[in-house]
Design a protein around this nucleic acid. Structure first.
Length: 578
RNA sequence: GCGCCCGUAGCUCAGCCGGACAGAGCAGGGGACUUCUAAUCCUCAGGUCGCAGGUUCGAAUCCUGCCGGGCGCGCCA
């Protein structure tokens, strides 16, 4: 029997072949794909397929008759060695009751694949050179818990996409060019002045947060009173400072905050490959409409497409040509570029870097921006909207003992990522934040999270891993899984259940990657851990029978490896002991 | 007003590219530690899948319309 049969996709392929022999596929018709699943109810078999239901119409046969025919054909062929019996049930399901030999073969596969189990589930043809951009916060203040969600989601997604076979570059776009940065620089300058005893004031529309006082202290430590005179000359109004002074302060502040970002994200186990500052998009290159760099090139491209026009002293892009509901300004009346123009240049830059697919992860408060970004992207060569995928993550509602708490960075009223990690730890935070679909608003009650952190489901999963490590440590010498050899023991119900769950892992990963849904891995790990804990309660691993010990410890090793792989994909540690 | 997301057990949410009597965690009731880690296991209780239509052999899942909540609709980012 070929090794390929000992996993779900192998079984599915052989059943598909039997179906195709029974009902030759119609080249012209795109039939819905058959599915092979592990049913929740044991009487529905070890695995079940809807193949006959899906093909019945095309075959012009009754689903139950077709299921019986496919079952008989399959059992006479590839199923003979791995399946005890089959049943036709319900409207036409084909339920398979697998033999011990299949389970032993499945375990053997798991042991052979080890830590590689589940890797590269994507067919080669569908693997892409991808860029995933996420977090991308203005460097004007600390990262708050909302950012922690996108960081955790984006990071887990990147890990999953890469594990599934894509080549992934993780990127942080730094908005360091616009009005908000200007206000940030002025606010920092004012705080710096205050620390030097001047009566400089933070502008009304500036950043009032106290963290800028800390930053001002650091600035003094770095440059002393270098800007004192300039500030004293304009006090209390910092908005009239010479541009070179605010510029220097702004850049220093930006770099200082970016350094903090890096430290916090590293702590959260969210690494980035590339940090692209918006300001660099304006540097170098030939000028067009007064702008150099990637920005100038983008303007030239769009002019080439005849999509730019002037109105009211501003330069507009005709995004309506590509489905937006109104045109958008790229260059303001004042001559200043809009954020949108930078963003267009940024995406042009990513395309030039050769990515076959780009994912941007944005917060729901930016979703209104999607049509114009799509339109602009499509307007640029190669005019392919499918290369850009915009994922909108819903927001985090911060609750305080049941009451919604509003956060505002400019007011400085925030709960930071570091606060969260201090309170509940990285593992609990990451597991909590990717446990739900990105499409659902997440209610986060910090007090409750702290209170409940000890019963966070993450420990349930980690405990299963630690338990297995302990068991394997207690194995007498030579009693462990004997390499890849799986003894011919009878496979009991708990072992079977565990192996079926293990067998689902590649499909779970594929679904998580395709649907951009890390929470599927999260949920799967809970199921696998539960299945293991049940097995542990009912089956003694270290037994007197050498073959049983070898089989069960092999099974444990496979569970441990899969747990470790899955936890790793979520950025959560897999401890050897707890 | 228009657009996007959500509405499933007391709470927080899975399931949603159609499939067999709707799942988990937490909270609640009752049990199990001379045994490889009790951060565990077993068990009980708990639901008009927001409402109403439609498509289908089959709808929590797809379509339409309502209702409720969140977020947007700047020459801010």
């Amino acid at each position: 029997m070929s090794e390929a049969l000992y996993d779900l996709s192998g079984l599915a392929a052989s059943l598909q072949a039997a179906l195709d022999e029974e009902v030759p596929p119609d080249a012209g018709v795109d039939a819905p794909a058959m599915e092979l699943t592990v049913p929740t109810r044991p009487e529905h078999g070890d695995v079940t397929t809807n193949a006959a239901l899906v093909a019945a119409r095309r075959a012009g046969r009754a689903p139950r008759d077709l299921a019986a025919a496919v079952g008989a054909r399959w059992m006479a062929g590839p199923g003979a060695g791995v399946c005890d019996r089959y049943e036709v049930a319900g409207p036409g399901f084909l339920n398979l009751f697998l033999a011990d030999s299949w389970y032993r073969g499945a375990l053997q596969r798991l042991l052979v694949e080890g830590g590689e189990y589940g890797r590269d589930v994507l067919p080669v043809a569908r693997r892409l050179k991808m860029n995933v951009e996420f977090v991308s916060v203005n460097p004007t203040g600390p990262l708050h818990v909302g950012h922690a969600r996108y960081a955790s989601y984006g990071d887990a997604l990147c890990r999953i996409l890469a594990f599934a076979g894509h080549e992934v570059t993780r990127e942080f776009y730094v908005n360091d060019h616009g009005t908000q940065m200007l206000r940030f620089g002025q606010s920092l300058a004012a705080r710096y002045g205050q620390r030097l005893g001047l009566d400089t004031r933070v502008p009304d529309d500036g950043y009032q947060g106290e963290y800028l006082l800390d930053l001002a202290d650091e600035l003094i430590a770095a440059v002393g009173d270098r800007y004192r005179e300039a500030l004293a000359a304009v006090a209390p109004d910092v908005t009239t400072l010479p541009p070179d002074v605010t510029g220097e302060i702004r850049v220093w502040g930006r770099d200082s905050i970016l350094a903090r970002f890096r430290a916090t994200l590293e702590r959260l186990r969210v690494p980035f490959d590339v940090w692209t500052p918006e300001s660099t998009l304006y540097e170098g290159g030939r000028e067009h409409r007064g702008f150099g760099g990637e920005v100038g090139q983008s303007l030239a491209d769009l002019d080439g497409e005849r999509l730019l026009y002037e109105d009211g002293g501003a330069v507009w892009l005709s995004t309506t040509r590509y489905g937006d509901d109104k045109d958008r300004v790229l260059i303001r009346q004042t001559g200043d570029p809009t954020y949108f123009l930078s963003d267009i240049a940024y995406h042009r830059d990513k395309m030039e870097r050769g990515f076959e697919h780009m994912i941007d992860i944005w917060g729901a408060d930016h979703h209104g921006y999607v049509p114009r970004m799509k339109a602009a992207f499509t307007a640029l060569p190669p005019h392919d909207p499918d290369k850009l995928e915009l994922i909108i993550g819903q927001l985090v509602n911060l609750l305080e003992s049941g009451e919604t708490r509003r956060m505002s960075k400019r007011r400085g009223d925030i709960v930071t990522v570091d606060d969260l990690v201090d309170a509940i730890g990285v593992d609990a935070a990451r597991f909590l934040l990717v446990g739900r679909s990105h499409d659902t608003t997440l209610d986060l009650d910090i007090d409750l999270a702290v209170q409940q952190s000890s019963q966070n489901p993450v420990y349930y999963v980690q405990y299963a891993h630690a338990r297995i490590c302990s068991i394997l440590r207690n194995l007498p010498p030579g009693a462990g899984p004997a390499g890849e050899a799986v003894p011919a023991v009878v496979v009991g119900p708990y072992e079977r259940a565990l192996l079926r769950t293990l067998a689902r892992f590649p499909e779970v990963l594929l679904g998580a990657a395709e649907q951009r849904a890390p929470h599927r891995v999260h949920n799967y790990l809970g199921e696998l851990a539960a299945e293991f804990h049940v097995f542990y309660r009912h089956c003694r691993v270290l037994s007197d029978a050498a073959d049983v010990t070898a089989f069960r410890s092999g099974l444990c090793a496979a569970v441990r490896t899969t747990l470790a792989t899955g936890l790793g994909l979520l950025g959560v540690a897999a401890p050897d002991s707890m």
